[in-house]
Design a protein around this nucleic acid. Sequence first.
DNA 1: TTATTATACATACAGGCTGTATGTATAAAT
DNA 2: ATTTATACATACAGCCTGTATGTATAATAA
Lengths: 195, 195
Amino acid sequence: MKRTKAAQSEATTGRLLAVAREHFTRDGYAAAATERIVAEAGVTRGALYHHFGNKLGLYRGVLEQVHAEVGQRVEAAAMTEQDPWQALQAGCRAFLEVAADADVQRIMLLDAPAVLGWAEWRAMDARHSMRHLQEQLELLAQEGYLHPLDTEALAYMLSGAMNEATLWIATQENPQRALQKAADSLHRLLAGLAV
Amino acid sequence: MKRTKAAQSEATTGRLLAVAREHFTRDGYAAAATERIVAEAGVTRGALYHHFGNKLGLYRGVLEQVHAEVGQRVEAAAMTEQDPWQALQAGCRAFLEVAADADVQRIMLLDAPAVLGWAEWRAMDARHSMRHLQEQLELLAQEGYLHPLDTEALAYMLSGAMNEATLWIATQENPQRALQKAADSLHRLLAGLAV
DNA sequence: TTATTATACATACAGGCTGTATGTATAAAT
DNA sequence: ATTTATACATACAGCCTGTATGTATAATAA
C-alpha cells in the first residue's frame, strides 16, 4: 500500500489531535502523558515531536480545534437573528450552551490560560469567538443603542462573565435550570448597557 | 540556641511560603521546582514534604494567603461606604485595584483554577472575596433594590467579569486609563440590575 | 532525672515524563 | 538513477516529584 506523504501526515496528525483531545479533557494538560497519547494513536513520540515540535504544540493544535468549533456555533446562532440586540443575546445564549461540553470547559476555559498564558489564550479566542462579541458590541454602539463605553473592556468582561457562568452551571445539580438563571442574569446585565 | 518546636516549625513554613510565593508568581506552578524553592528557603525538600505533604499542599498554603489578603482589602474598601450600592461599587473597584498585583494575577487568577480545579478554587474564593460579593447582592435584593435574579449566578458572573477585567487591564499600556474604562463598564452593567 | 515518644527535619532512591539526538525507510525532486 | 527531504522509530539524558529511611532534638511520661 502506497500513500502520499501529505496523506500520511494528515492521517497521523488527525489521530494525534483526536486522541490528545480526549486525554487533555480527561486528565488535564499536566497529567496527560505524551507516551500514553501516542500509544493510543498507534505511533511513537517521534511522530508527535516531528509534527508538533513539543507537547505544547500538540496542545495548541487541539485548542485551536476547540476554539474554532465554539466560534462557528456561536456565530451560526447569532446570524439567525436580524436585530443586533437579538443577535447578541442569541450568541451569548449559544455560547452558554456550547461551552457546557467537557472538552470546552477543561481545555479551553480551565487549562488554556495557565498553559499558554493569558495573552496567547486571549489572542486565540479573539480569532474565534470573542471577535464576534466585540464586533457586535461595536455595531450596537455605532447605531446608538449603547451607552458610550469602551467596547474592548466590555467584551472582555462579558466574556469573563460567560466563561465563569458555564463553569458554574456545570456544577449545579440542575444544569438546565442554572442555564436559565445565568441567561436571565446576563440579560439584565446587558440591559444596563442600552440607552 | 534552643528553640521550641512550634517556633521552629512556624519559621520554616513561613520562609517556605514566602519563597514559594515568589517562585509561583515568577515561574508559574508547573515550572516552579521544589528543589529551587527549598534551596532559597535554606532547607531541604524533606522539610517541605513534612510540613505541606506535597507540592500542591505548598501551593494551597500560598494561595490561601493571597486570597486572604485580597479578601481583606476588598472588605475594608466596601465597609467605608454606608449605602449598599456604594459599598458594592467600592468593593468592586477595590478588587480591580488589588488584583493588579502580579502575585494575584498569576497565582490566584491564572494558575489556581487549572491546578486545583474549578470547584476547589471557587470554594477557597467563596471563603474570602466572593462571599462578600454575594452577601452584598443579597442585601440589595432583600431591600428591593434589585431585579428578581439569582444572586448566586450573578455573583459568579460578576466575579468572572472582574477577574477577566484585571487581567486585561494589566496588558494595556495605560493601566490607569484601562482601569477607569473597566470601572465605567462595570458601573453600567451593575446599573442594569437596579430596579 | 531518666526513659520514651513524637516532631522536624536531611538524605538517598525510584519512577515518570519531556525533549533531543540519531538512525532509517520511503516519497519527492533532480 | 541519484539525491534530497519527509515521516517517522529508537535510545538516551536530564529534571522533577514523591517516598522511604535515618537522625537529632524537643516534649512527655515514669
